[in-house]
Design a protein around this nucleic acid. Structure first.
Lengths: 341, 341
DNA sequence: TAGCACGATGTAATCGATTGCATAGTGAAG
DNA sequence: CTTCACTATGCAATCGATTACATCGTGCTA
């Protein structure tokens, strides 16, 4: 460290009080007298004092930061969620640490180290695909209470989570297509093993069944949340003898790639087939055709996650420890769906 | 803090040595004897010791983390760069803190506080649009050496930066279109005042001039790095009396929105007009038509930025302090450009 | 064998803020 | 005038790791 900033001691000297008083003035102004308060304030200004967080963190046994774990930093889906998390954290004087589960894994670190380390006070995990042994370790760790999942989660664990109404979203999608007149509806799923994939797929099947619609095994097309998977799904759809007139894709990216691949094979959307996505990412609106989709409010998911985590980290003022928050989704109708010809 | 982890003292007690020896064993194994090394290693394992970073940070006067500042967290362009930065940082045992300039500004914090605070040892700024007074403050701060720009930068300042060959990229774009046979080429710029916008625009004009191509003022269409701007630019192009046969857009997003809007007005790309982007974001390949663009290696930009910053933060072993790194770009030819009809 | 160098380890100060406890000072009640 | 309550402030320990300096022991050299 080249630069020497002034410390509490310097401020105390200038204000002619003890360091204890300065500290109290800064963190709990009510307990000191009016006169010292102003004196300290002046001294702070005069010295250009900035609190040293490392010192405070050591003394208070808090890192004043939260780790956010993404499956993959390069996935644009998460940016809005980060924005939401960050917004709330910075309001609370907390910083946001970012890492990807892949990278942590590759570097041989253990996730729990971030907590053991005093690097972070809690973590928000956006990856439901963690290795089971990692999950076991997290769950049995004494700090398990300071871990929370968002968007994705892991069934059978006790971690609280914030997520959107995935089932309801799938239902809305099917009903939208049904209302347009579609009776043969396919579903392109997310990656095998992914919780979101299962929720959405199960709800899709439930709704199809409830509406007594025709239903074939190969109308459930296995995909992942990637562009390439969308292309493969399109090829699968093209290869069908009896093609559904509408396709509900488990994500917008998937839907876009699906449509792109169709168009390369001279199929038109929505004329030849209606296609829906899920998420409502920024590009959905600009896509050709603009994508009909199920919107998740990612900003709110992020904010809610941060709020819930902070409630578990901070001293319990208002004991409002929800175990899970399930946020509403909404149908956004654009141009990629229409009545069957 | 609910959880009590073991400390150096605990390890020292178990290994029957002093804390100094344990510390040395951990950070500088060569200076201790073989036997103590194994004894300490066993004690560490037995106690489940994890270093307390807050304590180490306080003692060493280092935060062991770096702040990355984005103009806007919700912009997917940056995710790859973050991935690159994070990759290198974690290799060095550093953590990555994320914040957005907008948010920092709104919350009334000062950027330099992150450094003064001992919250971060350095920062990588991805926003060339900082307020001039903020820039002045950063530049005159004693810690200015620990600040670095990536992707964007600020002309007239002394901050080192990592960027791609913007000029060369624009030149490549123009020449690609020229080689296809285009003689009337337009440019949709980035946002006014943005350094990238200027570089690319200036290089565009230079190259047009060099090639002695026709050139009209309204063939430079003012845009921003947003989808909406791309739509507006398309409308501007449509409104031209004498329409250029090719358009070089300053970003992929811009190009995609441009194409989308054209298609809404029944213009086809590349049949009616060739369109190029800049960046090569993930979606460029999947777009319809797949986008011809100038590729920036964002992963490498991130890694290089992290490396350069670390070189300035860490003790100078190999004094290789480049002031700026300019990384190559490459032309990626896809389907959005073709010879004029 | 004395002297010295060097390797290995211990002692204790230190980083800077927080906070339990002690104390001084003030005013009111008895 | 004493005593009590209460407010404002100071003292000093503390969080846990690092590191300058001191010390001890061993082996080599003259």
């Amino acid at each position: 460290m080249v630069v020497k900033t002034s410390t509490l001691q310097d401020v105390a000297r200038v204000a002619n009080v003890s360091t204890a008083t300065v500290s109290r003035t800064l963190s709990n102004p009510d307990v000191v007298s009016e006169s010292t308060r102003t004196r300290v304030a002046e001294a702070v200004k005069a010295t250009g004092y900035r609190i040293n967080r490392a010192a405070r963190n050591l003394r208070t046994q808090r890192a004043h930061s939260v780790l956010v774990l993404l499956p993959d930093l390069a996935n644009p889906f998460f940016s809005m969620i980060l924005e939401g998390i960050s917004r709330h954290l910075s309001q609370e004087g907390y910083s946001m640490l970012i890492a990807s589960t892949k990278q942590v894994h590759d570097s041989g670190e253990r996730l729990i180290d971030y907590l053991d380390d005093a690097r972070a006070d809690g973590m928000i995990i956006l990856d439901g695909g963690l290795d089971p042994e990692v999950v076991d370790m997290l769950e049995s760790a004494p700090q398990a209470k300071r871990i929370l999942f968002a968007c994705e989660w892991i069934d059978g664990t006790s971690f609280p989570s914030v997520r959107c109404e995935n089932r309801e979203g799938a239902r809305m999608a099917v009903n939208h297509l049904y209302d347009l007149g579609h009776r043969k509806i396919a579903h392109v799923t997310g990656p095998e093993g992914n919780v979101l994939m299962h929720r959405r797929k199960d709800a899709f099947i439930d709704e199809i069944t409830k509406l007594k619609l025709e239903h074939k095994p190969d109308w459930i097309i296995a995909g992942e949340f990637s562009l390439a998977a969308g292309c493969r799904a399109a090829q699968a759809w093209i290869a069908l003898d009896d093609r559904p007139t509408a396709v509900f894709c488990a994500s917008d990216q998937l839907a876009m790639a699906f449509i792109a691949e169709l168009s390369r094979h001279a199929f038109k959307v929505p004329e030849d087939v209606s296609v829906m996505g899920f998420d409502d990412i920024g590009l959905a609106e600009q896509f050709i055709p603009p994508l009909t989709t199920i919107k998740q409010d990612r900003l709110m998911i992020g904010e809610t996650a941060a709020k819930m985590l902070m409630a578990r980290i901070l001293p319990p003022k208002d004991k409002n420890l929800n175990h899970a928050a399930v946020l509403p989704v909404s149908l956004v109708v654009r141009k990629s769906t229409t009545a069957p010809h």
